[in-house]
C-alpha cells in the first residue's frame, strides 16, 4: 500500500496559493507595474494554485470514501 502523493501536493499548492493571494491583496500595486505589466500576478496565480490545491485534495478524499 503506497501513500497518495496527491495529498501533499494538494496541501503544498493550497499553502503557496494562500500565501500568494494574501500577499497579492496586501502588496503595493507599484511592484506589478514594474514587473508584471500591471497584472497582479500574485493574486491571479495564487488563486489558480488554490483551486489546483483544492482539486488535488478533493481527489484524495474521493478515493478514501
Amino acid at each position: 500500500m503506497s501513500f497518495d502523493i496527491r495529498l501533499p501536493i494538494g496541501l503544498l499548492f493550497l499553502a503557496i496559493g494562500v500565501i500568494l493571494v494574501g500577499y497579492g491583496l496586501s502588496s503595493d500595486a507599484e511592484i506589478y507595474r514594474v514587473h508584471s505589466l500591471g497584472t497582479n500576478i500574485n493574486l491571479l496565480w495564487g488563486g489558480v494554485l488554490v483551486v489546483f490545491g483544492l482539486l488535488m485534495l478533493a481527489l484524495t478524499l474521493r478515493k478514501k470514501t
Binding site: L20, I31, H35, S36
Partner: peptide, 8 residues
Amino acid sequence: LKFFPTGM
C-alpha cells in the same frame, strides 16, 4: 527577475 515580483 524581470517579470516576477516578490511572491511569484
